[in-house]
Design a protein around this nucleic acid. Sequence first.
DNA 1: CCAAAAGTGTTAACTTTACACCCATGT
DNA 2: ACATGGGTGTAAAGTTAACACTTTTGG
Lengths: 226, 226
Amino acid sequence: MTTLTLPPQAAQVGLAVDVAAFAMHGGELRVLLVQRGTLPHAQTWALPGGFVHEGEELHDAALRELREETTINLEPRHLEQFFTFGAVQRDPRGRIVSVAHMAVLPHGTVRVTSGGNTIGADWFPAHTPPPLAFDHADILTRALNRLRTRLEYAHLALEFLPETFTLPELQEVHEAILNRKLDKRNFRKRLLAQGVLLASGERRNGVGRPAQLYRRAKGVRVPTNL
Amino acid sequence: MTTLTLPPQAAQVGLAVDVAAFAMHGGELRVLLVQRGTLPHAQTWALPGGFVHEGEELHDAALRELREETTINLEPRHLEQFFTFGAVQRDPRGRIVSVAHMAVLPHGTVRVTSGGNTIGADWFPAHTPPPLAFDHADILTRALNRLRTRLEYAHLALEFLPETFTLPELQEVHEAILNRKLDKRNFRKRLLAQGVLLASGERRNGVGRPAQLYRRAKGVRVPTNL
DNA sequence: CCAAAAGTGTTAACTTTACACCCATGT
DNA sequence: ACATGGGTGTAAAGTTAACACTTTTGG
């Protein structure tokens, strides 16, 4: 471990990352939480997160924590830093600054099991989470705001879905994130006008008329920065 | 100095803040830079910044660095964290993570003199800065983006001006930030429709027809978060 | 009376919203 | 044949963008 010589008055801080990871489950937006196994806040649910390692990029630390603490079987489709929480008293162990990230996991049977210092991991309704450790409720609120903002510009909703999907499914994602209903005709008009969707074959659902399948048009990318 | 016990693999990092502080000078958007007096990057221009102190909030650290390094005679009207730069190799001294802030200083003869470890301080055109130390050019680019975004929602342009101002002055601020010309009539229509401006007396300029003076309407606040 | 900057409205294009019925399939 | 969910168009309201002349002052 290399030693960094800091000026005498510089604070010694712990640098952590926390991740608000979202996915769709049963037509609802869910957030991934872990149940803490150690003090402080043992038993309490929290966002997955932990300390950044030696020589490790922030982005990579966020990915690692997501994997270590939850054993996710899917890669995040989007991972983005959105705010740094550094209030002096936010952690009773001392000064710990957390670079908070927002992640989107693709559709699919996302299974989670606990790992690391956690005694559980599960998905919870993103808009109505259980009580959370530390300032994680604030972090989650801000993550939801960022997710909503990104929905407009970027085509982030597509990241929640498998490679091919139907327009009703895509609308469901938008509605779950915005937490309100959208008009079906206007939604379709808008999305198709953007030219980011490409029609393919048909799909037969269980019931009702089969929906047209779409995939993202070639060359459509989610902007990494803003 | 209290000691924080970190897990063995946790990185030891320095935590810093950097501030991109903007003001209007002569119809142009300028950014405040300091000339470094010490290695690395001695002589090079950089954003004001430095290490966070023991028990100091990030916001306060940003304010302090602004004051220490430049001796500004005005309080920032807006100060907002916008991104955290943590690339492993961004600073040759070791792992230093910087929480970058964007600040707006009000109009007026903003005088700066160097202080602390700097050998100079001055204002530079924000869209065409000199070569900058570390990754400060990236930080500045992102700060400008954030400033533009805030212009839409918030009434951040008002923070660049004195308490009373004219519509042409306000338009000048918008144009300087967006780096393009705006239509005078549409600009006025839009701003007045928002109901954030209140007319007061008249002002006589050097030349031409005197402009109406405005002040911000009571109860109009810049949202601190988003 | 001239130079300089402030102030003022209208129209066309575009965008957004509201709204109701028919269609294709499985059972 | 019926239940289920998918698919389609139009009109009104609102927003944005383009555009040129008159007014008020100082010199």
